[in-house]
Structure formats: C-alpha cells, structure tokens
Simulated assay, not measured.
Amino acid sequence: MSTTGRRPDAAQNRTRIVEAARAALAESQHVHLNEIAKRAGVGQGTLYRNFSNREALLAEVYRRDVDELVAAATDLLAAHEPGEALRKWLDRVIDYAEVKRGVLAALEPEAWQDLVAHSHNPIEGALGLLLDAAKAAGSIRTDVGARGVLLLIAYLSRVRHDEWEAMARPLMNVIFDGLRRQGADG
C-alpha cells in the first residue's frame, strides 16, 4: 500500500513504523510487532491498519531499502566522481545487506524468495550504471560486470551475524580494491 493519497499524519505513521522495524531488524532477527509499534510511537491498531501482519511489514522494509539503494546510484553519480560514487554505493550495500539478512531470516522462504527475485534486476541495473560510469572514467577494470560483482557481494551473506560488524566492511573493501584498475586512484 502506498502513501499516495493518505493523510499526512497517516503517511508519517507508516514511515515511522517502517523505520522502527528497520532499526529493530538491524539489532535482531527476532522482531515483535508490539515492540515496533512502541518504537514508532503508535498503537497496535495503527500498526495493523498499515500492515496486516509481520510479513507485510518486513516486506515493506525490504522494498524501501531496495528503492533507496537503487535511487542512491543516480544521486551519488550526480554528486561524486564515478569511482567515489561506486565506493559510497558499496558502503550503502553493507547497510542494506544487514537489514536484508534480518528480513530474510524473519520471513518464510516463499515470501523472501519472491522479494529477492523482484529486487535483483533493479539492484543489478543500479550497480551496472555505477560500473559503466567508473569504467568510462578509467577508475575500475573493464573486464567485470554487475552480475559478477553481485556474485562476490552475495558471499557476504555467509558472514555470521556476530562477525558482521568486524568483517563486512573490510571484505567489501577487498571487493572494491579488486575492481580498481591498476594505477587508478579510486
């Protein structure tokens, strides 16, 4: 359900609920709706008017993160040189991946498989845009594409939850360093 046509306070409530759920997922995979309602400063009724169940709320968190990640590619390219835009986008991928892990762990396999299937093409397209710009600028190698980079990034899902903070960004740095063209500043 979109926020278009909603009263401003109802749209704000929905946004607060999604943000509270996202924050809770970053902390733990075990998210309870009453805790999310409390964090969002809304009652249970308001939460259920916006999201009929836990799965609907978690799916909305995931979709919003995908939308923000995809939109960030264009925004970053407008504000930074291509290699730096790619680096900043990969940093965002780490944040996205952390929430994605929580959402996928909390959903039934059929529900998360559908979400992932619908998000793959937009994310690959955003990454492709960044890679093409960085290739044209001469800052990354020309022999890799978005699909290959996504396969490398996918291995981050093997990092255990208790190791995420210590390992995710350093591993993403290894991926980025591998993309840089020899002699490029990056």
Rank of each mutant, 00 (worst) to 15 (best):
W89T: 07
D65Y: 04
V66E: 09
A126Y: 11
L90M: 15
E108L: 10
A97C: 02
A73R: 08
W89E: 12
R63H: 04
G125A: 13
K88P: 02
D95F: 00
V103H: 00
D95W: 09
L86R: 05
A56W: 01
D114A: 14
S52M: 08
V116H: 01
D75R: 15
V93S: 06
D114P: 02
E110Q: 12
R87P: 00
P109C: 07
H120L: 14
G45E: 11
G45F: 00
L107S: 05
F51T: 02
S119V: 04
L77K: 02
A56F: 07
A73K: 08
A40G: 10
R87D: 15
A106D: 10
V103R: 06
N121C: 01
G125L: 13
R92F: 07
D91T: 04
G45H: 10
P122L: 12
V93G: 05
L127G: 05
E81I: 08
G45R: 10
A97R: 09
N53T: 00
W89S: 07
D67R: 14
L76Y: 14
L104Y: 12
L104A: 05
A79P: 01
A59T: 13
A117L: 12
T74P: 00
G128I: 09
N121R: 10
G43Q: 11
R54P: 01
R87I: 07
N121D: 15
A78L: 05
A40M: 09
E110V: 09
G43N: 13
A78G: 12
R87V: 06
Y48M: 05
D65A: 07
R64F: 00
Y48E: 06
E55D: 15
D114V: 14
L77H: 02
L90Y: 12
L115A: 09
H120W: 13
A72C: 11
H118M: 10
L107K: 02
G128E: 10
G125K: 14
V70N: 05
S119I: 11
